[in-house]
Design a protein around this nucleic acid. Sequence first.
RNA 1: GCCCCCGUAGCUCAACAGGAUAGAGCAGCGGAUUUCUAAUCCGCAGGUUGGGGGUUCGAGUCCCUCCGGGGGCGCCA
Length: 585
Amino acid sequence: MKGAYRELEEALRENVGPVVVDRTQNPKFGDFSTNAPFKMARERRQPPPVIAQELTERLRPVLEGRFSVAAAGGYVNFRMEEEALAGWTNWAAGDPWPEVFPKSGPKVLVEFISANPTGPLNVANARAGAIGDSIVRILKFLGFRAEGEYYVNDAGRQIANLGLSVLHFMKPDTFPLPKDGYRGEYVKELAREFVPEATPLLAKGPEGITLREAEEFGRKVAHHILKLQKESLKRYGIEYARFVMESEIRGSDYPERVYSILKGAGLLYFADADGNEANVPLPETFGELYEGDRYRYEGYALLFRATRYGDDKDRVMVRSNGEPTYFFWDSAYHLHKLDRGYDYLIDIFGPDHHGYVPRMKAVMGAFMEATGTNAVYDVIIHGQVNLYEGGERVRMSKREGRIYTLDDLVADVGKDAVRFFMLLRAPQTELNFDLDLARKAVKENPVFYTQYAHARIMSLLDYAKANGVEGKPIKDLPGEERGVAALVQYFPYYLLKALPIRLREEVWRGLNLPYANVEGKMDFSPNLLVDYLIELAHTYHSFYQNNRIVGSDRQGERITLSRAVLYTVRYGLNLLGVSAPERMG
RNA sequence: GCCCCCGUAGCUCAACAGGAUAGAGCAGCGGAUUUCUAAUCCGCAGGUUGGGGGUUCGAGUCCCUCCGGGGGCGCCA
C-alpha cells in the first residue's frame, strides 16, 4: 500500500499525464483536485468543462472503490471513498512512512552553514542549519540520495589573522592585534588554551613570524573552533555527511584544474590596475604564475570572464599581488563537488552573500560546459533573522561583545523550538524570532502545540493499554473521524510541496511515471510541512476534545486513528529535526 | 545609480505551476473543565492583497510603473 496521495498521483499520471494534483481549498469539493482541464483547454481547443467531463469518465473506472470522481466546472475533484480511507488509515496506523518511497533517486548535495572557523556559530547559521538539514532529511525521505556538506575555510589570511589575534591576547604588549583581528571573549579563552602550541612563535616575536607560520598556528586554532562548532551542531541535531577543508582543496590538484579548464575555454586574462585587459600571455599552468613564493605577474590580476555567463562584471581570481581570491578557492571546491557526480548541487547562503551568486553560477556554468558535466547548480539565499524579546528587537553588537550565538539560542529556548521557529517561514523571507514565545509552554507556541499532540496520544495509548483497550481495524469514519483520517493522507503531499517543482517531478520520474520537465528555481518550502503539522495537531486536538476515546463504543477504531496521527506527527517532526516527546514537561 | 528579497486582517504570517468564496495563529469579544493531559477545545468579529496601468476565460500570483522596508554591489570573506 502506498497511501491515498501516491495512489492518486499514479493513477492520474498513468491515465492522463503529469498533471498537478492539489489539495482542495474547500472540503465540499472533495479531498484532492486537478485543474488539468484548464491547462489542456488551449491545445485541445475545447472548453475546460468538456475536458473535465471527459477526464471524469475516463478516471472513474480506474479509481473505482478508492476515489469518487466529479467534474466541477473546469476542475476534476476527487473524494476518498470511506472504505478506502478506512483502509489507508489502518495502514497509516502501522508506522508505514519510512517505506513509502524507494531510496534510489537522484544524488543531491546540499552545502549549508560553512561558517568561518574563527568563532562560534550565530543566529543566521542557525537558520541555514535548520533549512539545510531539514531539506536533506526530506529529500532522503522521498528517496533522493541526499547529503549535507560543510565547507571549512581553514586557510588564508583570515586564518593567519586568527592566529595573530590569539597571540595578541597571550602577550598584548608585544603582539599587536591585527587590523580586522578577532577580539571576542572566546579569543581570550583560546589564548589561554593554546600557550603550548604558541611557545615557539612567542619566542620569535611579531617581526620574526612569517605569514605562513601565523597561518599554520591559526589553523590549529581554527580546527579547535571547528570542533566546538561540531559540538554545537550536534546539540542542534544536525549531522553532515562530511566536512571539506579548504586547506585540503588548496593542497590538491583542483586549483590547477580550475586554471586549466578556464584557460582552455578562453575565460581567463590578465588585467592591469584599472581593470583593463592587458596584453600579457597566460602561462601554461597555475603553478607557473609563481616562482617559489614570488608572483611573476606583479601588478596584473588574473580575471575570469564571468560576464560570458551572465554576471555583470568579470571577477578577480588572483590579485595583482599574487594572492588568489576566496572566489578562486571556492571555485576549486565547487569543481571538486561537480566531479563527485551529483545530479543536483545546492548551496545555502546567507543574505550577505547575495552578490556572490552570479559569479558562482557563472563559473559553474563554465565548468559544466567545458567538462561536459550535466548537473543542476542553484543557490538558496535565506533571509535574515531578527530576535525579539519583550516586544523589542534584540540588538547585537560584535564590538561590544553582545552577540547571540547558536549555543545561546539553544540553551535559552531549546533545540526543538529553535529548529521549528527557523522553519516557520519560507527560507528566502526575513524571520522574526520571538524569544518570549519560544520559551513558553502554551498553545500559542506552535512547537509546543504540535509536540503536545504527540505526547497526548502517547499518554492516551498508555491509558488505553492499562484499561485493556486495543486498536481495531477501522471500517467506517463517522463524524470528525473522517477529517482526521483525511488529513493524515495529506502527509506525503506536503512533503512533495516542500520541494521545488523540478524535484517533485524527479520523484515521479524515479517511480517510472510520466513526469514534466520543469526548469526553474530551486525554491524549497519546508514551511509548508510545518504548517501542515500544526494543522494536523490542531485537527487532532479538536477531535480529542470533542470525542471520548477509551470507553466509547468506537474505542478500538479511535485508538487506531490516533495511532495513524501519532506516526505522522512523529515523522513530520523528525524531518524538521524536532523531537517527538512521549510526555510534556 | 544598478541587482536581489519583501509589502496580504490591529500583529506575525499562509495561499501549493495563473484557477473555485484570499486562509491560519496571536491580540479582541463570548463560551466549554468532577478529563483518556483545559498545556486543550468551540464560537464571533476582523480584507480595496502598498498605489496605478497591462496580459488573461480567470491575477495576491505574470509584465510595466510608482511608493515603502531590508540586503547586496571590493584586487574582503
